[in-house]
């Protein structure tokens, strides 16, 4: 493609300089995994959102310092996805054809079921990295402003467990505090295998579709049915990537079903197991008389 207008090439010196740098900022395998997880988690958050659906968005800011805004933005995006009815469809594109269960469940799901207006935080907490920009061509719907936080919203150092404080501290880049195995994979050198169990997209989609089903039942007020689906999730994915969301959903559904004692116990277990989870405040308030 020689063209007379073509500008002169870069000088040898500058070209050599760039040659040395080209590829220096290629992502590592860990980068790819980490961001993929974040994207899917942002989508997945929608499924769990409905489970936490009895009102209010207290959980939104429960991640504490610095994460509030980020969380809100992600909720907006996640809800936009759900609102557009795209979540089910797109997520199932991740399905392996060999996983008929996931596909069927995903397709059988009405998009409406995920379109809850309630919010929930994504599992992956964006820490110091506050996303300034919701995608410019997204409608960027801001969910209802988070209700005054009941608890855990702006934790003061005094009443937050040390582990939670640590997880919220801005120096960690991608804390996976809410993940079942809170091992830090984000900054791991490329060679080191991630110590966190990697959910394959297929598995994640299957997990997600179960949670979304449960969410659908919950929204319809059939908490017992939701609990059955959640039990199925627990049985199928005992160490699933969405285990925290499931347990949160269980506690909320128990309370919704009027099984308050069990619900409160489940909420307590959840709080202990996931002290830094953004869902914590939501879960704990679910069983409190309003």
């Amino acid at each position: 493609m020689k063209d007379e207008n073509e500008p002169e090439a870069l000088g040898a010196d500058a070209a050599a300089f760039l040659d040395g740098l080209r590829g220096a900022d290629d992502p590592t395998a860990a980068d790819r995994q980490r961001v993929r997880r974040k994207v899917l988690a942002a989508v997945a958050a929608t499924g769990a959102a409905g489970l936490a659906s009895s009102g209010g968005a207290a959980a939104a800011s429960a991640t504490g310092v610095g994460a509030g805004l980020a969380t809100k933005v992600w909720i907006g995006v996640a809800i936009a996805l759900a609102g557009a009815g795209v979540v089910g469809g797109v997520v199932t594109t991740l399905d392996d054809p060999d996983e008929p269960a996931a596909v069927a469940a995903g397709r059988g799901e009405s998009p409406r079921a995920a379109a809850g207006s309630e919010s929930v935080s994504p599992r992956t907490e964006p820490s110091e990295a506050v996303p300034e920009a919701p995608p410019s061509d997204s409608p960027a719907p801001t969910p209802a402003e988070p209700a005054p936080v009941v608890e855990g919203g702006a934790p003061s150092p005094a009443n937050v467990p040390a582990r939670a404080r640590e997880a919220a501290a801005p120096r960690e880049r991608a804390p996976s505090a809410a993940l079942p195995a809170p091992a830090e994979a984000a900054e791991a050198p490329e060679a080191a295998p991630p110590s966190e169990p990697e959910a394959s997209p297929e598995t994640l989609a299957a997990e997600l579709s179960l949670l979304r089903r449960a969410h659908g039942y919950s929204r319809a007020g059939d908490h017992e049915a939701a609990l059955r689906v959640l039990a199925e999730h627990r049985q199928t994915f005992p160490a699933g990537a969405l285990g925290a969301e499931r347990e949160a959903a269980v506690a909320i559904a128990l309370c919704g079903a009027g099984r308050r004692e069990e619900g409160r116990a489940a909420a307590e277990r959840f709080s202990v197991a996931h002290p830094a989870s953004p869902l914590r405040a939501r879960v704990r308030s679910a069983c409190q008389p309003r």
């Binding site: 993929r36 942002a42 995006v77 996303p131």
Partner: peptide, 10 residues
């Protein structure tokens, strides 16, 4: 991370 994530969410 966040910007890349935004891109892929879109």
């Amino acid at each position: 991370d966040d910007v890349v994530q935004d891109v892929f969410l879109v």
